[in-house]
Design a protein around this nucleic acid. Structure first.
Lengths: 229, 229
DNA sequence: CAAGCTGTCAAACAGCCGTTTAAATCGTCT
DNA sequence: AGACGATTTAAACGGCTGTTTGACAGCTTG
């Protein structure tokens, strides 16, 4: 209403970051407290935006969740796919699992937002509510089938049923680890609470590799040597 | 605080099963849809009881959750403790883990209520909300410390930090399995969806035993033999 | 019988929820 | 300048939430 801002290099509106701030706030709150217990009022308050902004920019609470997940999961899945495709045909179980795990946990060091996202993903994998879990699984299904196929190729001595169950266990372990990517609580004394991402990747990969590579169920040698049963 | 009823033969009221029916309905609904999204109206409707019955018998929604968990977790933990104590001093990792896992998954065959409880526990372990998770962890802490001590004794070559992390992974795998104790969805074709409990216990125990018993992180032989890194 | 406790019931409470509306504001273009 | 689309804003909507209340029924005990 006054002097002309001739050098208005800012072609974007004054507040183009409302959408991003909503995503950031939702990411943090959904991860910390869960999707259902987090109200849109809490999200918009944290983002310093109006309550109606969520519906203007996203349409609904669920669409906001989908956007939060897609923003980071799409690039992450793309890199996991690249890593899997770059493996030699004869790659072993450990390499395959590492190609999947390492880009994931690398987000721990990509800023606090990405770290919150990891917690959110770890929870979304096991969410009781269909709507939340399906939002996540829909974006993962193709990659998971690819991972299953690679592992089946690397473990030809196992039945596909056995590969499935071991992969099921391994993904459960990964989800459990992701949930703790943010912070740890109630640790027994003497255990380091902060761990470098590289060490964590190593430990996790070794754990699930050992579980996947063990002898088949009907291996007599194994049954005789072990103390189980 | 009054006269002692020397012979209270019929101390039960006419409808002593309202409390139990509330526990059953809450167990089922909490497991199927989650604690927060399940309303007391849904619980009382399923139990064919009045809305106020929850507050009369338990005091609050959270107290109902605690009662649901305690009803089955107390006997379960008692048996896990017995199984652990009955082990010989020289028991191996596999036996220790099996003593913990087997009574747990045995609830799969103890009726539909117990099966729902397993799902609920698997979710409570990872619940974002502090109130839910702490209700569960408070009843588990002593047993978990005992389990940690036994495993440390069985794996003397590992640092306590390494034992902690491997146990952390193993419990994550168990929690993931418990969540699926109820039913499975979206399985790839050709994979049996219903599995006998014994087979499941075997597979799970073998998986986490292999992860826990692997060589220490700095084992040169292992690093040279494997294809990882 | 009357008193008393236990359990049930319908109704209401305040409060928060996701969503919608319509008006107000801002930046940009003709 | 005026007009226009893009955004923000305050307010309200109906609906569902956990919890509380007070009256009422059934059985046990004086």
């Amino acid at each position: 209403m006054k002097s002309i801002p001739e050098r208005k290099r800012t072609r974007r509106p004054v507040r183009p970051d409302t959408k991003r701030k909503l995503l950031d706030s939702a990411e943090t709150l959904f991860a910390a407290r869960g999707y259902h217990v987090t109200s849109l009022r809490a999200v918009t308050r944290a983002a310093k935006a109006n309550l109606a902004a969520v519906h203007y920019h996203f349409g609904s609470k669920q669409a906001l969740l989908e956007a939060v997940i897609a923003r980071r999961l799409a690039p992450l899945n793309a890199e996991r796919q690249l890593r899997l495709a770059a493996l030699p045909d004869a790659a072993g179980t450990s390499s395959i699992l590492r190609a999947f795990v390492e880009p994931t946990l690398a987000l721990r060091d990509a800023g606090p937002g990405a770290r919150h996202f990891l917690t959110l993903v770890g929870r979304a994998m096991v969410e009781p509510e269909e709507s939340v879990r399906s939002v996540f699984l829909a974006q993962m299904q193709g990659l998971l089938e690819q991972l299953f196929a690679r592992l089946s190729g690397a473990l030809p001595q196992l039945s596909s049923q056995e590969v499935f169950w071991r992969l099921f266990f391994a993904l459960g372990t990964l989800a459990h680890t992701l949930r703790m990517a943010d912070k740890f609580r109630q640790l027994p004394p003497g255990v380091a609470t902060d761990l470098a991402t590289g060490e964590l990747v190593d430990m996790l990969t070794r754990f699930i590799t050992a579980g996947m590579e063990q002898a088949p169920a009907d291996c007599q040698l194994c049954a005789a040597a072990g103390d189980h049963r």
